[in-house]
Amino acid sequence: VGDQVLEIVPSNEEQIKNLLQLEAQEHLQLDFWKSPTTPGETAHVRVPFVNVQAVKVFLESQGIAYSIMIED
């Protein structure tokens, strides 16, 4: 199991704000291929294997929908 690319769908401005804060966490080494800008629009982010669980827990705790787009 390696890195994953998640497709994330924020449903409101609050969730977009939370994702932008997540993007700013440099220690997570997230690679946003497509940043969140509009509710209902997908964002794509590559998550290093060591941080996959932490990111998924965060998304679930914020009620942000996501799916695994690419499993490496």
Rank of each mutant, 00 (worst) to 15 (best):
A54M: 10
F49S: 14
T38F: 10
Y66K: 00
H44L: 15
K56S: 04
H27L: 09
H27F: 09
V55F: 13
I70Y: 14
A43F: 13
F32I: 04
Q25F: 12
Q25C: 13
Q21D: 13
R46G: 03
E14M: 08
E23R: 15
P36W: 03
E60N: 07
E13V: 10
K34I: 12
Q21F: 14
A43G: 04
V57K: 10
L30C: 05
H27D: 11
S11P: 01
P39F: 04
Q62F: 15
V55N: 00
L20Q: 11
V50A: 13
V50G: 10
G40Q: 04
E26N: 12
T37K: 06
S67H: 05
D31T: 13
K17N: 09
E41K: 05
N18D: 09
N18F: 14
G63W: 03
P48E: 03
F58E: 03
E23V: 15
F49I: 12
P39M: 05
V1T: 12
E14L: 11
P10M: 04
R46M: 06
F32P: 02
Q62G: 05
N51F: 13
E41D: 08
A24F: 08
N51W: 13
P39G: 04
I70N: 09
M69Y: 12
Q29V: 08
Q25K: 11
G40L: 05
E23P: 04
V47R: 00
T42Q: 05
D72Q: 11
T42L: 06
V55G: 00
Q53G: 07
W33I: 14
V50Y: 10
T38K: 13
L28Q: 03
S61W: 05
V1N: 14
E23G: 13
Q21K: 15
A65I: 10
H44Y: 15
K56V: 12
K56T: 09
I70L: 11
I68Y: 05
P36F: 04
P36Q: 02
A24Y: 09
D3A: 13
A54R: 08
E14R: 07
I70F: 14
E14P: 03
L20R: 12
F58G: 01
E60S: 05
I64Q: 00
H44N: 05
T37D: 05
K34R: 06
G2R: 04
L28N: 03
Y66S: 01
E60Q: 06
V1L: 09
D72P: 10
V57L: 13
G40R: 04
I8H: 00
D3M: 15
A24T: 09
V57H: 13
K17L: 12
S11E: 13
V57P: 00
G2L: 09
T38H: 07
G63R: 05
E7N: 07
E13W: 15
E13G: 06
Q15K: 02
E13H: 12
H27S: 11
Q21G: 08
I8V: 09
R46V: 06
D31F: 13
K56L: 14
E71Y: 10
E41V: 09
T38W: 07
Q4Y: 15
Q4D: 03
M69F: 11
V45R: 00
V9C: 14
A65L: 09
A65W: 14
L28W: 13
L6N: 00
W33D: 10
E23W: 14
V52Q: 05
Q25I: 09
S67M: 08
L30V: 10
K17F: 09
N12W: 02
Y66R: 01
L19T: 01
Q15A: 04
L22I: 05
I8Q: 00
D72I: 15
V52H: 04
V1R: 14
I68N: 04
V52C: 05
T38A: 13
V47S: 01
E71G: 09
G2Y: 13
Q62T: 07
S67G: 06
I8L: 08
Q15L: 01
S11D: 09
A24E: 09
A43Y: 15
F32W: 15
Q25G: 05
H44P: 02
T38N: 07
L59W: 01
Q25A: 11
F49D: 07
S35G: 11
F49Y: 11
E7C: 15
N18V: 15
T37C: 06
P48K: 07
I64W: 01
L22Q: 02
H44Q: 13
A43Q: 04
L59C: 02
H44K: 11
A65F: 14
K17H: 09
L19F: 03
E7L: 15
E71R: 04
E13F: 11
V57R: 13
L6V: 04
V9I: 11
D72Y: 15
Q25V: 09
L19V: 05
L30R: 01
T42I: 13
S61T: 11
D72T: 09
E41C: 08
D31Y: 15
Y66I: 01
D3T: 11
Q25W: 11
S61H: 08
Q29F: 10
L59K: 00
L20C: 06
E14N: 07
R46T: 06
A54W: 13
N51H: 14
V52T: 06
L19A: 01
S67L: 06
V9T: 15
I16D: 00
V9N: 08
M69I: 10
Q4N: 05
